[in-house]
């Protein structure tokens, strides 16, 4: 039997760096729709034969994203290796970074995340729709800004990794998705609720202690 030489692919540093630049581009393009990026997609579309340099390439791409764009590559699922991009700049120019419809959607998203958190981290879908009713947002009816709200929530917010449905029939519940944990925090959301309601965050004792866990 012939001894098959193990094909340890050695790539020059230039080749690896080129892959790094390609990966940065790939991540920026994939982030256009804010859908989390899977390791398998990275391998399939960018890295392929450089598989053995995967972690080196990902690490270097993250470094470039941080150094050049002030962005950070964050793993939101360490088992299946799923990533998102978040902003690393303090006091980023929020008002500039999103426009038109996107901005309005972020408003609705924060309201939904606030509601889920304040209601104890999980709400039945019917409870969420009832709450949105109070804000003149009716699922199943065309909204002047959001169009079909049920579709927006289930087909855009959920795949984006924000609210996350827990499918345990017959109940359908929403809780925070992995992106929510990285893009905002319970503390931030509680501050928002407190500001809206003109109260101190400590007013809601259990939410307050939960929001401050791990940050102290």
């Amino acid at each position: 039997v012939d001894c098959i030489p193990t094909q340890v692919e050695r790539h020059s540093q230039d080749q690896v760096n080129q892959k790094v630049n390609e990966l940065v581009q790939f991540l920026l393009v994939k982030d256009q729709k804010k859908i989390p990026i899977k390791r398998t997609d990275i391998l399939k579309n960018v890295i392929w034969e450089y598989k053995n340099a995967y972690s080196e390439i990902v690490k270097k791409a993250d470094k470039i994203l941080q150094e050049v764009f002030g962005l950070q590559l964050v793993e939101i699922d360490s088992k299946r290796h799923i990533y998102i991009l978040v902003n690393k700049l303090l006091h980023a120019e929020g008002q500039h970074l999103c426009r038109g419809k996107e901005k309005e959607k972020m408003g609705l998203l924060l309201v939904i995340l606030s509601f889920i958190f304040m209601k104890g981290n999980s709400v039945k879908d019917s409870t969420l729709w009832e709450f949105l009713h109070l804000l003149r947002v009716y699922p199943g009816r065309q909204h002047s800004v959001f169009g079909d709200v049920r579709k927006l929530v289930t087909e855009e917010f959920v795949p984006g990794g924000h609210p996350h449905p827990l499918t345990e029939p017959p109940e359908f519940k929403f809780q925070w998705g992995p992106r929510a944990e990285k893009e905002t925090s319970k503390k931030d959301v509680l501050n928002f609720v407190a500001k809206m309601q003109g109260k101190e965050p400590a007013f809601w004792a259990s939410q307050y202690s939960e929001a401050n866990q791990g940050t102290a």
């Binding site: 982030d31 980023a92 929020g94 408003g107």
Partner: peptide, 17 residues
């Protein structure tokens, strides 16, 4: 909702696209 969105962005570390 534009106004709400503007406020909301202060609470997100959203990456520009």
């Amino acid at each position: 909702w534009q106004k709400m969105g503007e406020e909301a962005l202060k609470y997100f570390r959203r990456a520009p696209t």
